[in-house]
Design a protein around this nucleic acid. Structure first.
Lengths: 328, 328
DNA sequence: CAATTAATGGCAACCGGTTGCCACCCGGTT
DNA sequence: AACCGGGTGGCAACCGGTTGCCATTAATTG
């Protein structure tokens, strides 16, 4: 079932078979149809390796996530997968285990076996990213680096909405519950929070950093309570859900005593207890857009892209974890 | 940065470079070290495609899931990913979108670009699976097919535990909320359920089939209530969580009026409302084991495997969605 | 009718490694 | 001195396609 078998069977040269299948207009109609029929009959599937070797294109894209079990990535993976399949490409999933070193190493390793990579939540320093982007098509998600294409979810804007929401409910002491320091989005959200607070003459407290797992939520919840804030905006939903659990354990009423706002609207945010008020992010769309940008980039290698970065809007979804500030 | 560049730089033949890197003992120590140093310096990474082409091994394994957003797979993906990385292999993730046809098509397409595949929740008929397994190393998850290696989570046993639990709480009318008919696990669970019920002289009701999404939960909840059962065992947690939501909407008290038991213990099962009593499955372990079996198979191609199928135990995790049967 | 051009298909090099086979060099034997 | 065998490294074929180039043939054109 190689190109040669088909060539032998149809009595033409291998090169003709190759053309009949990949450049149909380059070969005579009757010859082509004979070859295609034979290929179908023999159930021929071209060897990707061989194609990649000579053409230099692997039709494969790597998606690097920092933790494959983080529900945030589910949507991203899905969106990317959909768009890739539509284009006939394959998805190589890589879990960097939240380590910049491992990320760099793996990136280096797959460098030559993929056409491009999508970096979701890269932990790499800007400098390193630039270097990588220069030698390999890259699209980042939620990370802005000069001269690197990216799709970023506008959570800073969402954070502002969240602050407005909380302030309008009478909250004055609001804290930001920070995620990993190496996360670009984390800093962006914190800045947005301070800006929004300042607009009302308020200053935001900040606790953390915390890991992004539900278990970190316990520590975070205690730290949050300790600030005396009546509301907390968290780096992401995973952390927020962990906080809700801990608060329930400690018998703290949400939103009666304290309001909690998450970020991303991941799976589970709508059915945790109480359902989480959060910034709904178009995660799946982000995955699709990232792939589109990458594929577009691949087709116009060398050209300067029209849009370097796409900003996706978020909106606040109000559920039951936020409510009026408690009377003092 | 090809083998030839290194050859030129060190003044040896390309074949020697190849050997120095892949069969170190086949070349003299000083030559080898010189070559290795040069390789390191030039930051050489072998071209996977080229290696695959000549060696026939791609060091890549495909994982087929029926729906990448189903939290059940997160753990599986994670486990597989971990074990694969440890072995230096890459993971190709494929979403079959719950279609047997697409599954077959994609399987066929990647056939030659992976060393083997792991089929999580295959929708393919047994016959087709046998054919595929004959021409490609395959390990299935939660699916038992003669002559195909598999790792199956012993949820039937778990279902029996669940029935015992419910019966001991006084339930007599228990219904099974079925998942997709094409799911092998679905039938296995239903059989286990009937057996367990029969042991107590009871017969189980059955509703469904339902899709495995939370939204299907609404329909399922109504159907479940309609049977008059005081408890329901569901095909999986996703469905169970959907049911809980719908029941809450309808003002039905869980577990006061009806108990619900899920299956798998996915992300979210512990923090939904009420927290779900469910069969805790070692999902991540299943992923790891599946990969181990596959890699083991690859190393001993042609040999008859020692164990064709590995059965992983489950246990019942009791939370708040199950309780005593209501008095009539 | 000769000349130019377009369509078609074969040849062979190439992508970047891997590997069987052989030649060569060396020290050790007899 | 002739012989032997192990250690090394080069040659070249091969994996399965892709593609530039050229020869052949047919069709178009002045």
């Amino acid at each position: 079932m190689t190109i040669n078998d088909i060539a032998a069977l149809t009595g033409v040269a291998a090169s003709t078979v190759s053309r009949a299948l990949s450049r149909p207009d380059r070969v005579n109609r009757v010859t082509r149809e004979r070859i295609q029929a034979a290929a179908r009959e023999l159930n021929y599937v071209p060897n990707t390796q061989a194609q990649a070797l000579s053409s230099g294109r692997t039709e494969t894209v790597a998606l690097l996530v920092s933790d494959a079990t983080n529900p945030f990535y589910f949507g991203l993976i899905r969106g990317a997968q959909q768009q890739l399949r539509a284009a006939g490409h394959a998805l190589l999933l890589i879990d960097t285990e939240d380590s910049a070193e491992l990320e760099n190493h793996l990136l280096h390793k797959v460098r030559r076996s993929v056409d491009g990579v999508i970096l979701a939540a890269s932990r790499l320093p800007e400098q390193t990213l630039s270097v990588i982007a220069a030698e390999l098509p890259v699209v980042t998600v939620n990370r802005n680096v000069p001269r690197v294409r990216s799709v970023v979810i506008d959570s800073p804007d969402g954070v502002m909405q969240a602050v407005e929401h909380l302030v309008s409910l009478g909250h004055r002491a609001i804290a930001y519950v920070a995620g990993p320091p190496s996360s670009w989005a984390n800093e962006a959200r914190w800045r947005a929070m301070r800006t929004a607070m300042a607009r009302h003459g308020l200053t935001a407290a900040r606790v953390g950093p915390f890991g992004v797992s539900r278990s970190s939520g316990s520590v975070a919840a205690d730290a949050l309570l300790n600030t005396g804030a009546t509301a907390g905006v968290t780096f992401n939903d995973l952390l927020a859900i962990g906080i809700l659990q801990r608060l329930a354990e400690r018998g703290v009423d949400v939103p009666g005593e304290i309001s909690v706002v998450g970020c991303d609207d991941i799976f589970g945010a709508d059915f945790c207890s109480p359902p989480l008020t959060t910034l709904t992010a178009p995660i799946e769309q982000a995955g699709r857009v990232a792939v589109s940008m990458l594929l577009d980039h691949l087709e116009h290698l060398g050209e300067t892209p029209s849009r370097q970065t796409v900003l996706l809007p978020t909106h606040l979804t109000i559920r039951q974890s936020s409510g009026p500030a408690p009377r003092r």
